[in-house]
Computed example of a mutant assay.
Amino acid sequence: MTLLFWVLKTVAVTLGETAGDLLGITLRLGYLATGLVFLAFFVVTVVAQVRSGRFRPALFWAVVLGTSMVGTEISDLLNRGFGHGSAPAGIGYAWGAALLTGVLGVVFLVWWRTGRTYDVENITDRPGEILYWIAILVSNTLGTSTGDWLSDDTGLGFRNAFLVIAGTMALIVAAHYLTNIPGTLLFWLAFVLTRPLGAAGGDSLTKPVAEGGLGWGTAWGSAALCALLIALIAHQTRHVRRHPLPPLPAPGTA
């Protein structure tokens, strides 16, 4: 189930990247209009998720997808400016990543000040879950900027950026098994990094061959990722029904 979680997370955020590019760039809706569409989707799903009394895989991953789609548009709007392409009117990928890193730090500081645990398996009350989703939204937005910075500003390109992030993820896995670094810290590092991994992977699928991609295009790439996500969610749903999750402990603090 742990492996399935990370596969689902990666597929969901990759779909968020390609779907954002599909509406914002390919269909020329622009980052602002696309962001508003995705924001409405995110608000509806996150409200339903917070009000839900138990884990529902389809709903949970719909919210994760929503954070990724909204995060893609926030990042593009911040870094590139208004429009429907790579307009040089924003603050740039590096400054965008730096700014969003600061915002994520503030979110975790506020979370810490509430006294609630960072351990996502032990979030047991509504305020804790709201903080969790805010952190995910900001982390996915940060991941978009980081992935774009690695792919474009450093000259690595989409495939090499993907390999660099995948290598970093492998080091985090090794640290989990071989060191005493707190698992919660490693979880959030990996959670942030799955977004640039998805951004680089999505670009690798959809961008033209001349630009280092596979040339699938945003429509076909999004369709393939959506089909894969639905299949994985269906598998997880069957697993949860056959092996119900144990009750959560009483609310705790960090």
Results as ranks from 00 to 15, higher is better:
78 L>C: 10
78 L>H: 12
78 L>D: 09
78 L>R: 05
79 N>R: 05
79 N>V: 12
79 N>T: 11
80 R>F: 14
80 R>A: 05
80 R>W: 11
80 R>C: 08
81 G>S: 09
81 G>P: 00
81 G>V: 00
82 F>E: 15
82 F>Q: 15
83 G>M: 12
83 G>E: 14
83 G>C: 15
84 H>V: 03
85 G>D: 15
85 G>L: 08
85 G>M: 01
85 G>E: 13
85 G>K: 10
85 G>S: 15
86 S>T: 13
87 A>V: 06
87 A>Y: 10
88 P>Y: 11
88 P>N: 14
89 A>Y: 15
89 A>I: 02
89 A>P: 00
89 A>V: 05
90 G>E: 05
90 G>I: 14
90 G>M: 14
90 G>Y: 11
91 I>D: 01
92 G>E: 09
92 G>K: 10
92 G>T: 12
92 G>L: 12
93 Y>S: 01
93 Y>M: 12
93 Y>P: 06
93 Y>V: 08
93 Y>E: 09
93 Y>D: 11
94 A>M: 14
95 W>D: 08
96 G>I: 07
96 G>L: 09
97 A>H: 05
97 A>F: 12
97 A>Q: 06
97 A>S: 15
98 A>C: 05
98 A>H: 03
98 A>Y: 03
98 A>G: 07
98 A>Q: 01
99 L>R: 00
100 L>R: 09
100 L>A: 11
101 T>Y: 05
101 T>R: 07
101 T>C: 13
102 G>D: 05
102 G>C: 08
103 V>N: 02
103 V>F: 06
103 V>M: 01
103 V>R: 06
104 L>H: 07
105 G>T: 11
106 V>N: 04
106 V>M: 08
107 V>I: 14
107 V>P: 04
108 F>H: 09
108 F>I: 10
109 L>N: 11
109 L>V: 12
109 L>S: 13
109 L>I: 08
110 V>I: 13
110 V>M: 13
111 W>C: 03
111 W>G: 01
112 W>M: 07
112 W>F: 14
112 W>A: 12
113 R>D: 08
113 R>E: 12
114 T>Y: 04
114 T>C: 03
114 T>G: 04
115 G>M: 10
115 G>Q: 12
115 G>R: 11
116 R>N: 03
116 R>P: 02
116 R>F: 07
117 T>D: 02
117 T>L: 05
118 Y>P: 11
118 Y>N: 14
118 Y>R: 15
118 Y>W: 15
118 Y>M: 15
118 Y>V: 13
119 D>L: 04
120 V>S: 09
120 V>G: 01
120 V>L: 14
121 E>P: 06
121 E>Y: 12
121 E>T: 14
123 I>T: 11
123 I>D: 03
124 T>N: 03
124 T>W: 06
125 D>G: 10
125 D>M: 00
126 R>M: 04
127 P>T: 01
127 P>N: 07
127 P>A: 03
128 G>A: 10
128 G>W: 06
128 G>V: 00
128 G>Y: 02
129 E>L: 07
129 E>T: 03
129 E>V: 03
130 I>Q: 02
131 L>F: 15
131 L>S: 00
132 Y>N: 12
132 Y>I: 03
133 W>D: 06
133 W>V: 08
134 I>Y: 06
134 I>F: 02
135 A>K: 05
135 A>P: 02
136 I>R: 09
136 I>E: 08
136 I>W: 07
136 I>M: 14
136 I>F: 13
136 I>Q: 10
136 I>C: 09
136 I>D: 05
137 L>H: 04
137 L>T: 00
137 L>V: 02
137 L>K: 07
